[in-house]
Amino acid sequence: MATITPQRFDADTDASEPRDLTIRKGPSDRLFDGITSASGLLVLVIMGAVGLFLTLEALQSLEAVGVSFLTETSWEPDRGQFGIASVLLFTVLIALVAVAIALPVSVATALFIAEVAPTWLRSWLISLVDLMAAVPSVVYGLWGLYLMQGQVIGLSRWLNTWFGWLPFFSVDGADPSSPLASATVYTASTFVAGVVVAMMVMPIQCVVMREVFSQVPPGEREGAFALGSTRWGMMRVVTLPFGRGGMIGGTMLGLGRALGETIAVLLIISPRFDINFHILEAGSNSVSALIASRYAESSEFGLSALFAAGLALFAVTLVVNFTASWFVARSRSGASSEA
């Protein structure tokens, strides 16, 4: 039995100090404490072990190549020549394209759900966005490969034709003036993969943002209305500033998911190993797709190299996630929010 015994107020205790509360716990509660703490510790150990074992397995290959692991672009571990530079660059590019596409949609959808939608529609929209987050990535991959790619190629060609002077949108070997030009220079590109990953990132960002937007104090909202604001004016001066931390945190959580996406990217891209910022150009890569496609035919050393790549991905994702939760926790609304 947990019994709280208040200390007697005596004349010699200092009245300005708070009293001590002593909690004496019975054996059953000590057992309860032990079991729950053990589970917390176990979770901590499992999560720590993930990092530890990846590092141990990666050491062999990392020792062999040293710092050039970060600068080398090719991936031929059996010739002793491999590095993360190109793969990681493409991974980040895919994630950035995905976030750039998903961010406006998720902010607007979260605002619509939190501020505009009538109550009966709100609960439906919330479940549908949750459903979007639960659709398996292989399904998004099939959708992207067989349906979306054909549509996105048209957009790619249009972007290349009119904005090809921007370094990001130029494509080697594309001839916008020729009506018979093949579309294959635009397939399997970073952009197409980014569009598909955006579908997975959008609901994750939207859930966090909606959570934060729904915590806006009603007093501030009504205050804005009382001062004559329109609904959009209220969102601009109350909801968006209030939810800024949640918006940044949600965006970064989505970025973390986009960096680690495997199967949808693997279905769409055709791998290439170079430094290339042309997001519309055919061929791309990602760390997780590299692991999934190479692990089966790797030698022991090649496997260790793949572990090193996995470790790099793990580290990048962890940094992104920690930054995200730091932003969310520091925001005004963060203490009780879901992220």
Binding site: L44, L253, S288, T317, S325
Partner: peptide, 12 residues
């Protein structure tokens, strides 16, 4: 730690 792990890449 748990919050940071929610976006653990599945391949990892």
């Amino acid at each position: 730690i748990v919050t940071a792990m929610t976006a653990l890449p599945s391949i990892v």
